[in-house]
Simulated assay, not measured.
Amino acid sequence: MSSNGPDTSGHKGTLIVTGGSRGIGAAVARRAARDGWAVAVAYSQDSQGAEAVARDIAAAGGHAQAVHCEVTVEADIPALFTFAADRLGPITGLVNNAGITGPVSRVADLKTADLERLVAVNVTGAILCAREAVRRLSTARGGAGGAIVNISSAAARLGGPGELVAYAATKGAIDSLTVGLAREVADEGIRVNGVAPGLIETGIHAAAGAPDRLARLGPAVPIGRAGSAEEVAEAVVWLLSPAASYVTGTTIDVTGGR
């Protein structure tokens, strides 16, 4: 765990962004910092990317810490929250962004080890992070309330046939988590929402083994192109903000109409 920028008080709260070293997570961290959040940029492997995000935030006058956290390791999650609160101040938000697609594969060819890793990161890790957030934010447990945004995917309703059915299934689980948890903690000062990106220009497609996916599918999007991580971040930060104070249990599509 490393430090970037001074400790601070007087900001709107501390936001934890899992998978914050690149792509949508990095865009969310930078955008939230512009709105006055102190940001814990959590990462699993890409320490250099997380440090770069934290430096960018500090250079712009904000406050951030890069924090190592493997969401599949239960003990790492309370350690992340404790470190973030100690260094940046009280936690009032979580963006459950850490996720993987697994390799592109038909279900018949899916390897069990890939499936187990996919569920561990995308489902179990997200639920454990949400659990820790609720334990700290819930007014019923002495917290001050806050907001959780879960990153889903348009794949949850499109299904990902021929490529990413297992990934789509894990994002369907995230949609269920969003609705159920939102209703469970609505009277405890916590709002829970989701954002479902569509085809977004990040490195996740190449990591899945389909570097041409955006070029191949982008023209078929009704709006005529793939989206950017920054466009997704705008929706996430709005859901975290007081402007969305009456919004909970909702997942917003950021898909260009797909």
Rank of each mutant, 00 (worst) to 15 (best):
A210L: 03
T14Q: 08
V67F: 06
I16P: 03
V232S: 01
R131Y: 07
A208I: 09
S138P: 11
A120E: 10
K12M: 15
I252Q: 06
P103R: 04
P222Q: 11
G25E: 02
R34F: 13
R131A: 02
S9T: 12
T101C: 04
A154C: 02
W37Q: 08
C69R: 13
E230P: 09
A244Y: 00
S153A: 13
V121S: 12
A60W: 00
E201Q: 06
I223Q: 09
D76F: 09
G36M: 09
G5K: 04
P197W: 09
R117P: 06
N4R: 13
Y167S: 00
A206Q: 15
G13C: 09
A215C: 00
A156I: 00
V41K: 00
E116C: 08
G61K: 14
S138Y: 02
E70N: 13
C129E: 12
A133P: 05
P219C: 08
L158D: 03
G218Q: 08
I100E: 04
V236C: 07
I200H: 00
V247C: 14
G61Q: 05
V119R: 07
G102H: 01
G99Q: 02
A210C: 11
L214F: 14
V165K: 12
A98H: 08
L94N: 01
A32H: 05
N122P: 07
V71Y: 11
I174E: 10
S2I: 05
A154K: 09
D109Q: 14
I190T: 04
A66D: 15
P161D: 06
I148C: 04
C69N: 10
T72F: 05
I252S: 03
I190Q: 08
A243R: 14
A173Y: 07
N4Y: 03
R22F: 06
V95A: 10
V107P: 03
V53F: 13
M1N: 04
G5W: 08
D175I: 05
L158Y: 02
G162L: 01
T92H: 02
A59D: 15
G49D: 05
L128P: 02
G218S: 10
A207T: 04
G145K: 08
D46K: 00
I24P: 00
A233K: 04
V121A: 11
Q65T: 11
G102K: 06
T112Y: 10
R131N: 15
